[in-house]
């Protein structure tokens, strides 16, 4: 948990948005929950699209 807190802080400084990182505890018996979380999270990241830096590069041609 502490690792996660510290890692989030580092990632935030590195421009990785909060919504791209998620911590869940799922036991081996919770197959349905696992599938659901992965699906949700995949969709969420898809919505976010590429990192801002890469978006700027693609749009502005400032490669």
């Amino acid at each position: 948990m502490r690792r996660y807190q510290l890692m989030k802080k580092v990632l935030e400084q590195l421009g990785v948005e909060d919504q791209r990182v998620r911590l869940e505890w799922i036991s081996s018996a919770e197959g349905t929950k696992f599938a659901k979380v992965i699906e949700e999270f995949t969709e969420q990241v898809r919505q976010l699209g590429p990192f801002k830096q890469d978006q700027k590069t693609a749009a502005g041609g400032e490669g």
Binding site: M1, R2, R3, Q5, L6, M7, K9, V10, Q13, L14
Partner: peptide
């Protein structure tokens, strides 16, 4: 991150959060 988090001496997540926030420029 892993090494540092393991030595944080906190009893609650809030306390851990407070101690970690003292690292002002981790990246």
């Amino acid at each position: 991150i892993s090494a540092l988090a393991s030595i944080v001496d906190a009893d609650t997540p809030e306390e851990a959060d407070r101690i970690i926030s003292q690292i002002v420029d981790p990246a």
